[in-house]
Nucleic acid binder design. Structure first.
Lengths: 164, 164
DNA sequence: GTCACAATCACCCATCCGGGTGACGACGCG
DNA sequence: CGCGTCGTCACCCGGATGGGTGATTGTGAC
């Protein structure tokens, strides 16, 4: 039913930092080798030199490794348009559903949405029917389960809807 | 008011893997140095040797770095006991708050909790006062924000409470 | 024992909610 | 044009909800 998005652009984008870090590694290798060979080779014992190089590369590697794995915690919330269509939920009803999570009364929802309280009631009643629920709380819960509205952990919502 | 939990045990626990990886790094350093100095020093040019050591340490560092940052995707939901205490929310009130997310009416909540509807109303009223809200939906939202009750993405809840 | 508090239940009352029905203008489609 | 859909608004009504106040019991602390 609901297939997770596997964006090819996102996967391709992963290789940019990898190449960058590889280049940085190669550059560091050459720089270090040149430095040790030209200047410090006669001033520092070879064992110390090896240790320093190892430590430097290990540190660089740690940095690269942390860089590579630290990503993708945000999880940007993509709305389930398929569910919206299959449930025949209209854009205005989605507005009302999003406004419902504030916990306001119909009167306040009406003010924030710029319509009459009766209209809010009608939209909510239709939502209940389409979502198969009987209370605002259940509407919010199922709306979140179906990814119609963002949950608390998701990013705040790019925009209410894609209308201008 | 509500301070995030800074568990000293959790912080101490972080140093165990760090020390382990540091020891592994040191061991690798000594091993590599010994190897190169004893056997390969006369067979391989020094530049190649340095490059090999650098690559090896970089790889080791990458592994360590990925090891250090790869963690915590599951997020097991730990209840914010500090908030519970500072808000003076009693265990029974927490039961009611958890039951609220079902979206049931007071009558059904009373049946599931095994008490009278009047008692449910009293608990809910006290919750509203302590959470500073005026509707069940707001109570659920702030309860989740304060980590008093699990959100949809969290693990289902180890147990309702720690009572038998 | 006294005190505080959690938990339970009761009652009153104004308001809100959920459920149902009806209606009207705007818009797009055939 | 006729038709369906969307958005808007109105009305009614029974039950639920939110906001108070008061009371009782058990439990634990002092």
């Amino acid at each position: 039913m609901i297939s997770p998005v596997t964006d090819p652009a996102a996967i391709r984008g992963l290789w940019r930092p990898v190449l960058f870090y590889a280049a940085a590694l190669a550059l560091g290798a050459f720089a270090l080798e040149w430095l040790q060979y030209r200047f410090w080779a006669r001033m520092i014992p070879l064992e110390i030199m090896i240790g320093l190089i190892g430590a430097a590369f290990a540190a660089l590697g740690v940095w690269v490794g942390m860089r590579l794995t630290r990503r993708a915690p945000p999880a940007p919330f993509v709305r389930n348009e398929a569910a919206l269509k299959s449930l025949a939920i209209t854009p205005r009803e989605l507005d009302v559903l999003e406004a419902l999570v504030s916990g306001d009364s119909n009167k306040e929802l009406a003010r924030t949405l710029g319509v009459s309280p009766n209209t809010v009631k009608t939209h909510i009643a239709r939502l209940f029917d389409k979502l198969g629920v009987t209370s605002r709380i259940q509407a919010i819960e199922t709306g979140r389960d179906l990814r119609l509205i963002p949950a608390a952990g998701d990013t705040p919502t790019p925009t209410t809807r894609s209308d201008g």
